[in-house]
Design a protein around this nucleic acid. Structure first.
Length: 866
RNA sequence: GCGGGCGUGAUGGAAUGGUAGACAUAUCGGACUUAAAAUCCGAAGGGGGUGACCCCGUGUGGGUUCGAGUCCCACCGCCCGUACCA
């Protein structure tokens, strides 16, 4: 019988569904295990990245099920956000209809993968049931003091009269209008995450099962620093506060730079047209950090001066700098060109003095085009004029300098964090409405909980949700916007800002424990299921999503929605790589009758070709249509515009879900990118067919058939159990699969008895079950296994079968391999040494002399130094 | 710019500081076949040598070590994030 995945897979998916084996319920007699993959945005199509992500989670979930755990493995959709509004703008329709249609489609695409999901817990964040509870949570957080309202700058499109997301600003212009984008200040809602900075930083230490790189990125993002706040005295009265983490360079200060939004800058705007023009120019700058940092550093002199705090009689000019951010520190910095590259570039450009602050005579003291930064110069000596002599800048030295300034009454030590408060306001329709009202009498008033959910208007009363007009439709919807004040009962207006979609994804993991509870969580369920034991997702979420979720978990503990133990909601985290695919590029020539008048006949352009359009020969790719060679760009991120997206549905149709699952696990370590190749998918399919054929062959054997090599086969089997178990537990799926390939080859060639071969194929099926569950069930059933393999306990390796009597040691001479030695496994070190010395390669190398040293690492290696 | 990561045969990759290239793809050879496909068996980092063997080799340049793909320093290239993409 041939291997027919389409038939096999449908059959076993039905069997799992019937037995409700993946439905999670609390249980007293099993340890719980909560495995979660980051839920998808409902774009409409699942892609290979999803398949890879969910397959990894599924391997863990099925393995934990087999090792006796009570597993929770849910799935949902992160369903609010801009793409739904963009779709509505592009082709009409309503974001809600578009989103739910996409969800239906994606669920239909995910089900054939045979994932061990509890679909009964599924929800979308745009469900009224979900976002209503999110509003309740928001009100609790507001009451508990986690929420704030303050001014913040946004990208403003002056033509469309709308706020733009960073990705909607292209080269400083609005993506639709093409108008020059401006910064605008709006009063917005914030979560006070910066109040929790220290706690979020400290708790990173306890996250032992998180990747070190993610902890490090979060640490740097939170960015704790202890520095000095110095009030520089203005010569015309008043002070300008500057914050610095390098107070030791104070003697080298040559100017003060303040932010364009600084109150002093704004105060000067009216009387100084030159400053006003510069500030206006700064307001056109991109608000992203990357753009700000990369932009050319520019400034203008305000004409104001301040007294130098430590050099008597000296004064410093005050400049406005485009590189100073009002959001950081005090919105003002002092510049020390000698010891900071950015300040040096600025000083050279504007002819400001460069004063060496602390190097000793004889050190490199000339400042050229490169600032003298301790790590970058050969200078050994370094005088800290305030705290003594040291060798390099250290936190101790800086702390001593801060002490000196404090003792002099010239400044104050302060701990600051880079982390800023989380602005959650979005001026958009398709998001969770912020449940507050603005009352002319009472001001900002929280909505009453019994009035929740504050639902998004659809078009119930004839006010259509129209995206052809720019701006937020909620602003133009009087019947929704007008309401009564919950406090005084007078006429009031709803808040029209909706919440950042990161809010939706910051607590969904808690909601999965009781997705239909009439409070944000059900404490009995949350107490039982939390924490997430294993969280799996992309590295692109290493900072924002994970940090926001950590903040939310703490806020939910404080408001009684989660147990104290859930302050850190994710016990273990794994970040997986992307699925990539080669891009095929052909060079085309514009024809005479090209309909696009902008394209001149004869001009060349690049066309991205679909994988189906090309064929491979000798490592090159050629167009099937006319045989022209096309350029191959390997390992590019799958992207619609590059025509290199492989649709999982096609793979499932051609080869089955097990093949797709096996392939995405097999070729690359999970944390790295994997390149999808047609040959790889083909190979996966061939292997699964091979396993199926072996099962068929063993099934046809005489049950009493004797054979030879039973012991060898069973030893290989136990070694495989051991390797696969370790591989699955450590996310070494690709290595585990390599071992399964090897064991399959052993079994294929085996001449062992039917009894041994049957044991081997059934164990192989169990070991493959987390990866290729349908095939495993089929083999299990064919061999007469009891029940479903999904319910069978995980095989345990017999330790006695793993040890060998002898061991082969490589022999090195001066660290280079020169031979090997097979000795009894328990041989004494001295005997191994003697045997190594007596071996041919060592004798040749010694040429009759004596070795300088012999290193014997038992069971591993012998190295002779001559 | 800043923070984090990655870089190994023709290709994807394997390798607790201990035999570099497991396993797989592509390639080549063989078996089976009228033939092809499928399947099965085998070869294979580069160079030299009749051979025993020898030299070179994990992005580049240094360093630590008996021993470095792995640890340290500098550089190059690519990827992720950079707070309103999700």
């Amino acid at each position: 019988m041939p291997y027919t995945p389409s038939e096999i897979e449908a059959r076993w998916q039905a069997a799992w569904q019937e037995s409700e084996v993946f439905k999670a319920a609390r249980s007293a007699d099993k340890p719980k295990y909560y495995v979660l993959e980051m839920f998808p945005y409902p774009s409409g199509r699942i892609h290979m990245g999803h398949v890879r992500n969910y397959t990894m989670g599924d391997v863990i979930a099925r393995y934990k099920l087999a090792t006796g755990h009570n597993v929770l493995h849910p799935m949902g959709f992160d369903a609010f956000g801009m793409p739904a509004e963009n779709a509505a703008m592009a082709s009409g329709g309503h974001p809600k209809d578009w989103t739910y249609a996409n969800i239906d489609e994606m669920v239909a695409q995910m089900k054939p993968l045979g994932l061990s999901l509890d679909w009964s817990r599924m929800f979308a964040t745009c469900d009224e049931e979900y976002y209503g509870q999110q509003q309740a949570l928001f009100l609790d957080m507001l009451e508990a003091g986690f929420v704030d309202r303050k001014e913040a700058t946004v990208n403003w499109d002056p033509v469309d009269m709308t706020v733009l997301a960073n990705e909607q600003v292209i080269d400083g212009k609005g993506w639709r209008s093409g108008a020059e984008v401006e910064r605008k200040s709006l009063t917005q809602w914030f979560f006070k995450i910066s109040d929790m900075a220290d706690e979020l930083l400290r708790a990173l230490d306890g996250l032992d099962d998180w990747p070190a790189k993610v902890r490090l990125m979060q640490e740097n993002w939170i960015g704790r620093s202890r520095g000095l706040n110095v009030p520089f005295e203005r010569t015309d009265g008043g002070t300008i506060d500057c914050y610095t983490t390098r107070p030791d360079t104070m003697r080298g200060a040559s100017f003060i730079a303040i932010a364009p939004d600084h109150p002093i800058s704004k105060g000067l705007e009216a009387e100084r047209p030159d400053l006003a023009a510069f500030i206006a120019e700064c307001r056109k700058m991109d608000t992203t950090e990357a753009a700000m940092e990369k932009a050319e550093k520019k400034g203008v002199d305000t004409g104001l001066t301040v007294k130098h705090p430590v050099t008597p009689g000296a004064t410093l000019p005050v400049w406005i700098g485009n590189f100073v951010l009002m959001d950081y520190g005090t919105g003002a910095v002092f510049g020390c060109p000698a010891h900071d590259q950015r300040d040096l570039d600025f000083a050279r450009k504007y002819g400001l003095p460069v004063q060496n602050a602390f190097y000793m005579p004889g050190d490199q003291t000339e400042v050229g085009d490169e600032a003298l930064v301790p790590a970058k110069t050969e200078t050994v000596h370094y005088i800290d004029h305030f705290a003594g002599v040291g060798e390099a800048t250290s936190q101790e030295g800086i702390d001593a300098t801060i002490d000196w300034f404090e003792a002099q009454g010239k400044g104050k030590g302060e701990v600051k964090f880079r982390l800023r408060d989380w602005g959650l306001s979005r001026q958009r329709y398709w998001g969770c409405p912020i449940p507050v009202v603005h009352c002319p009498t009472c001001g900002v008033v929280p909505e009453k909980k019994e009035n929740l959910p504050v639902t998004l208007p659809y078009d119930e009363d004839g006010t259509p949700i129209d995206f052809s007009v720019p701006g937020n439709p909620l602003d133009r919807h009087p019947s929704w916007r007008d309401c009564t004040c919950p406090k005084c009962g007078g006429a009031a207006q709803r808040e029209t800002d909706t919440m950042d979609t990161f809010v939706d994804s910051s607590w969904y993991f808690a909601r999965f424990t009781a997705p239909h509870a009439d409070t944000p969580t059900d404490r009995a369920e949350a107490d039982y299921w939390m924490n997430v034991d294993q969280y799996i997702g992309g590295i692109e979420h290493a900072i924002l999503h994970l940090l926001y979720s950590r903040f939310f978990a703490r806020a939910m503990v404080a408001t009684g929605h989660l147990p104290e133990s859930a302050s850190e909601p994710f016990d273990a985290l794994f970040t997986q790589g992307m699925v990539t695919h080669a891009i095929y590029k052909s060079i085309e020539t514009v024809g005479d009758n090209d309909p696009n008048p902008a394209l001149r006949p004869g001009a060349k352009y690049t066309k991205y070709r679909y994988p189906e359009e090309v064929e491979h020969r000798d490592g090159k790719a050629f167009l099937k249509s006319d045989g022209r060679e096309v350029e191959i760009v390997p390992s590019a991120k799958m992207s619609k515009s590059k025509n290199n997206v492989v649709d999982p549905l096609n793979i499932i149709r051609d080869y089955g879900a097990d093949t797709a699952r096996w392939f995405v696990l097999s070729d690359s370590p999970p944390e790295r990118d994997v390149e999808w190749t047609a040959s790889g998918a083909e190979a996966a399919y061939k292997h699964l067919s091979r396993v199926w054929n072996i099962c068929d062959r063993i099934g046809a054997m005489d049950p009493e058939a004797p054979g030879t090599g039973d012991d060898d086969l069973l030893r290989a089997m136990h070694a495989c159990i051991d390797d696969v178990t370790k591989g699955v537990e450590s996310f070494g799926f690709n290595a585990a699969i390599a071992k399964l390939y090897a064991f399959t080859a052993t079994l294929q060639k085996s001449k062992a008895s039917h009894k041994a071969q049957r044991e081997a194929i059934m164990t192989l099926a169990q070991l493959m079950a987390p990866m290729t569950p349908h095939l495993a069930e089929d083999i299990w059933a064919h061999q007469g296994g009891a029940g479903l393999v999904v319910n069978a306990p995980w095989p345990v390796a017999d330790e006695a079968m793993l040890v060998s009597d002898t061991v082969t040691l490589p022999i090195q001479v001066n660290g280079k391999r020169r031979g090997e030695l097979t000795v009894p496994a328990d041989m004494e070190k001295a005997e191994v040494e003697a045997a190594a010395l007596a071996s041919g390669p060592v004798q040749r190398a010694l040429e009759g002399g004596q070795p300088k040293k012999i290193i014997v690492v038992p069971g591993r290696i012998v190295n002779v130094v001559v």
